[in-house]
């Protein structure tokens, strides 16, 4: 056994621009195993881009990203192998509309992990059962509510048994009455020890679930800390202004 386990995620000096527009300007972040980190900040502060970079969906300009000690931004790394260990759930669900719920969940285990159809579907069904979706296994995504679709998307990511789960504003596209069912699922995952990085606009949820909250502003992590302190006594003026606007909008 090695002395100290490598952190689940380590980001060093991450830079990313889209054309002339810098989106991430030197991000450093450390996420321990079983930790839940929430990224907050205004739209355009770089939260989503940061998550997409960690999943190698965006090419980075500078910096390094390590997952469980392995540098995933190294040249010649097998991106498909890396992505197997990192799950991501998108704001717009991105379920495959031409596949049933069961097929959505079992596709990657079958094609990537080479499980037999029977095994993959049995395990997918067990997962769907756990999240109260077993009766939807034969439905197509457009027959489900937004909350159900997002829960299926979470189950689809979990079916690959990722070491790290990235959640990109997963409740932003939902009607308010459907938000709770999705957040309950995430609470359950956090209680089960899943390592998660969550970009969110739900401040009360972040306060509730996060071990640590990072405030992104202008492509940098301006301030980070435990949720109690971040929400009650933020140090930076920009953080205070952001939280005041959120409170004014009734989101905290």
């Amino acid at each position: 056994m090695t002395a100290a386990p490598a952190p689940a995620l380590r980001i060093e000096g991450l830079h990313k621009s889209f054309g002339d527009l810098p989106v991430l300007r030197g991000i450093d972040l450390l996420v321990a195993e079983h930790e839940v980190v929430c990224l907050i900040g205004a739209s355009g502060s770089g939260k989503s881009t940061l998550l997409r970079c960690v999943n190698l969906l965006e090419e980075i300009d500078a910096g390094r990203i390590f997952v469980a000690g392995e540098e995933i931004t190294a040249p010649k790394v097998d991106v498909d192998r890396i992505r197997r260990r990192i799950g991501i759930v998108f704001q717009a669900f991105n379920l495959f509309p031409h596949m049933s719920v069961l097929e959505n969940v079992s596709l990657a285990p079958r094609k990537v992990l080479r499980r037999s159809r029977a095994d993959a579907e049995r395990e997918a069904l067990e997962l769907l059962e756990r999240f109260g979706l077993a009766d939807k296994q034969g439905e197509f995504p457009d027959r489900l509510s937004g909350g159900q679709q997002q829960r299926v998307a979470i189950v689809r990511a979990l079916a690959m048994q990722p070491d790290l789960l990235l959640l990109d504003e997963i409740t932003s596209a939902l009607d308010p009455e459907l938000v709770a069912e999705v957040l309950d699922v995430i609470r359950g995952l956090a209680a089960g020890g899943m390592t998660m990085v969550i970009a969110t606009h739900e401040m009360s949820f972040a306060r509730d679930i996060a071990g640590r909250v990072c405030f992104l502003d202008g492509g940098r992590i301006l301030e980070e800390g435990p949720p109690d302190r971040m929400f009650s006594a933020p140090l930076e003026e920009r953080t205070q202004q952001f939280l005041e606007r959120i409170i004014a909008a009734g989101r905290l």
């Binding site: 498909d80 192998r81 992505r83 991105n94 495959f96 990537v112 690959m160």
Partner: peptide, 16 residues
């Protein structure tokens, strides 16, 4: 493109 992103994020290869 988000469909391809979802598939790739699950570890499917470009061809898959």
């Amino acid at each position: 493109p988000s469909q391809d992103a979802a598939a790739r994020s699950l570890g499917l290869s470009r061809f898959q």
